Lab assay of single mutants.
Amino acid sequence: TVKFKYKGEEKQVDISKIKKVWRVGKMISFTYDEGGGKTGRGAVSEKDAPKELLQ
């Protein structure tokens, strides 16, 4: 599970739902399947990112 803040809201998403991951400076950005055909997005700092996300 990845915990992150998006627009001031605390969120979390299961690693299995993450589609795409990329690095922006010291942040790790990602998109994930929100269900219902929607794609969500989020970002975590490199130090807070789970190891599975960095692979």
Score class of each variant (00 low, 15 high):
T1N: 07
T1A: 09
T1M: 14
T1C: 11
T1G: 06
V2G: 01
V2T: 02
V2R: 01
V2C: 03
V2Q: 01
K3P: 02
K3F: 10
K3L: 09
K3W: 08
K3H: 10
K3G: 03
K3M: 07
K3Q: 07
K3S: 11
K3I: 12
F4I: 05
F4D: 01
F4T: 02
F4A: 03
F4P: 01
F4S: 03
F4H: 02
F4K: 01
K5N: 11
K5Y: 15
K5D: 07
Y6P: 02
Y6M: 07
Y6A: 07
Y6E: 08
Y6H: 11
Y6I: 11
K7Q: 10
K7H: 13
K7T: 02
G8E: 04
G8A: 03
G8C: 05
E9I: 14
E9Y: 08
E9D: 08
E9M: 12
E9K: 13
E9A: 10
E9C: 08
E9H: 10
E9G: 07
E10L: 12
E10H: 09
E10G: 05
K11P: 01
K11W: 05
K11V: 09
K11R: 15
K11T: 06
K11F: 10
K11C: 06
K11I: 13
K11Q: 06
K11D: 02
Q12D: 07
Q12W: 12
Q12M: 12
V13W: 01
V13S: 02
V13N: 00
V13F: 03
V13A: 04
V13Y: 02
D14G: 05
D14T: 07
D14H: 14
D14F: 08
D14V: 07
D14P: 14
D14S: 11
D14L: 14
I15Q: 03
I15N: 02
I15H: 03
I15G: 02
I15T: 07
S16C: 10
S16V: 12
S16W: 09
S16G: 09
S16T: 10
S16M: 11
S16H: 08
S16L: 10
K17H: 11
K17Q: 13
K17W: 08
K17T: 10
K17N: 10
I18N: 00
I18Y: 00
I18W: 00
I18L: 08
I18E: 00
I18D: 00
K19D: 08
K19R: 13
K19G: 05
K19I: 14
K20V: 09
K20T: 10
K20G: 07
V21P: 01
V21N: 02
V21L: 06
V21Y: 06
V21I: 13
V21W: 11
V21C: 08
V21D: 01
V21E: 01
W22G: 03
W22C: 11
W22P: 01
W22H: 06
W22R: 07
W22L: 06
R23N: 04
R23Y: 10
R23W: 14
R23E: 02
R23A: 05
R23L: 08
R23H: 09
V24Y: 12
V24R: 09
V24N: 13
V24G: 04
V24P: 02
V24Q: 13
G25D: 04
G25K: 05
G25R: 04
G25E: 03
G25Q: 03
G25S: 03
G25L: 03
G25N: 06
G25A: 04
K26Y: 11
K26S: 14
K26L: 11
K26H: 14
K26D: 15
K26T: 15
M27L: 14
M27N: 07
M27S: 06
M27P: 00
M27E: 04
M27T: 10
I28Y: 05
I28S: 00
I28A: 01
S29I: 15
S29G: 13
S29R: 15
S29H: 15
S29V: 15
S29T: 14
F30P: 00
F30T: 00
F30D: 00
F30M: 01
F30V: 01
F30H: 00
F30E: 00
F30G: 00
F30K: 00
F30R: 00
F30C: 00
F30I: 02
F30Y: 01
T31M: 11
T31Y: 10
T31R: 03
T31V: 09
T31S: 07
T31K: 04
Y32I: 02
Y32S: 00
Y32D: 00
Y32C: 01
Y32P: 00
Y32V: 02
Y32Q: 00
Y32F: 13
Y32L: 01
Y32G: 00
Y32W: 09
Y32K: 00
D33F: 05
D33H: 05
D33V: 06
D33L: 05
D33Y: 07
D33M: 05
E34T: 09
E34L: 14
E34Q: 09
E34G: 05
E34W: 04
E34A: 15
G35T: 05
G35E: 11
G35Y: 04
G35N: 04
G35C: 04
G35M: 05
G36W: 08
G36D: 13
G36F: 11
G36T: 07
G36I: 05
G36C: 12
G36H: 13
G37H: 04
G37Q: 05
G37D: 05
G37L: 04
G37Y: 04
G37A: 04
G37E: 04
G37C: 06
G37R: 04
G37F: 04
G37V: 03
K38R: 12
K38Q: 09
K38M: 08
K38I: 12
K38N: 08
K38P: 03
K38V: 12
K38H: 08
T39Q: 09
T39F: 13
T39G: 04
T39I: 15
T39M: 10
T39L: 14
T39E: 11
T39W: 09
T39A: 07
T39C: 11
G40R: 06
G40D: 03
G40C: 07
G40H: 07
G40Q: 08
R41N: 07
R41W: 15
R41Q: 09
R41Y: 15
R41M: 14
R41C: 13
G42E: 01
G42H: 02
G42M: 03
G42K: 01
G42C: 04
G42D: 01
A43E: 11
A43I: 15
A43R: 13
A43V: 14
A43W: 15
A43L: 15
A43S: 14
A43M: 15
V44C: 06
V44H: 01
V44M: 10
V44G: 00
V44I: 15
S45P: 14
S45F: 14
S45L: 15
S45H: 15
S45Q: 12
S45C: 15
E46Y: 14
E46I: 14
E46T: 12
E46R: 10
E46K: 08
E46W: 14
K47V: 13
K47T: 11
K47W: 09
K47N: 09
K47D: 13
K47C: 11
D48L: 11
D48I: 08
D48F: 13
D48P: 01
D48Y: 13
D48S: 09
D48M: 10
D48Q: 10
A49N: 01
A49T: 03
A49C: 12
A49W: 10
A49I: 04
A49G: 02
P50S: 05
P50R: 03
P50Q: 04
K51Q: 12
K51R: 12
K51L: 15
K51F: 15
K51G: 09
K51Y: 14
E52I: 11
E52Y: 10
E52T: 08
E52S: 10
E52G: 07
E52W: 14
L53T: 01
L53R: 01
L53P: 00
L53Q: 01
L53D: 00
L54W: 09
L54R: 09
L54F: 06
L54G: 03
L54V: 12
Q55T: 12
Q55N: 13
Q55E: 14
Q55D: 14
Q55S: 12
Q55I: 14
